[in-house]
Design a protein around this nucleic acid. Structure first.
Ligand SMILES: [Mn+2]
Ligand SMILES: [Mn+2]
Ligand SMILES: [Zn+2]
Ligand SMILES: [Zn+2]
Lengths: 139, 139
DNA sequence: AGCATGGATGCGACATTATTGCAATAATAA
DNA sequence: TTATTATTGCAATAATGTCGCATCCATGCT
């Protein structure tokens, strides 16, 4: 598949061997266009990869900067491509306290007033808005 | 101790029995003035409470609104008093990606531009700035 | 003060998420 | 193609948090 070739190259450009599992996982992130956790990845891939390999790949991708952890949902770590983020301005997420539904907030800017303090260096922000989704707001 | 009396009353005002463990834990939060996790709590209390009780108390306090989860540090959930927060404007935190050091950011305002979307209700924000602390910046 | 009662605790078992050691395997360079 | 070395699968282990249950104790009532 031609898409696989591009994904493989992307992996090698980032210093990672283009193994089957990695190609499938990165392809999934590219195709999904939304944050993914370990369980979802394995289900979408048909449980073909070992759990440990999925975790190791998520860590490898994160260290390489191909993905980053978007947020923690309960006990689950959820990862995504950093494509909707620009530099230190990572896009925020919303989480429904009632049903656990989460969503990327794209049309939503975060601004800060004040400064961190002498010597601190900001590299990234994680913003999570908690509240109620439209469904849970009813009733 | 007179302080214990006040803490006990605070617990009862929130519909919680003023047991020894709860008085000690809430006293710790009031005295510490900084976010605390389960491990820190048990160490500071000399391991007098059972692990399960600490977790149950953290949950009870959270449901009562006496504390809330400030952030997740690796696998650890860290809680704090909501006294530095006002309504839906919870104060942000900083976390050093190198040493794991975290800090409350008090002189730091967060502003949003744009809106959530029809039907969404924002109740709380969790903002975590990741980067390097002064010590780790030196390297 | 003494007693009754229901919630809280201690303890062990369990659930879940994530990591690690190690032998087998597969991706890359020569 | 072969050699080299990172990666994988598998099982064991770690780490965090929850649950059931018998016991205990904080509270309200007498
Ligand atoms: Mn996102
Ligand atoms: Mn804080
Ligand atoms: Zn919802
Ligand atoms: Zn640091």
């Amino acid at each position: 598949m031609a898409a696989d070739k591009r994904v493989s190259d992307l992996l090698r450009e980032n210093g990672l061997k283009a193994t089957k599992g990695r190609v499938e996982m990165l392809g999934l992130f590219l195709k999904a266009g939304r944050p993914l956790g370990q369980m979802q990845i394995m289900e979408m891939l048909g449980l073909k990869l070992d759990r440990a390999s999925v975790y190791r790949t998520l860590n490898a991708f994160t260290e390489a900067g191909i993905i980053h952890m978007a947020y923690v949902n309960g006990r689950h770590r959820v990862y995504e491509l950093p494509d909707k983020c620009s530099g230190r301005n990572c896009h925020p997420h919303f989480s429904c306290r009632s049903c656990g539904m989460t969503a990327c907030l794209e049309g939503f800017q975060v601004r800060y007033k004040g400064n961190l303090g002498k010597g601190f260096v900001a590299e990234r922000q994680k913003v999570l808005i908690e509240g109620l989704c439209p469904d849970c707001k009813e009733k």
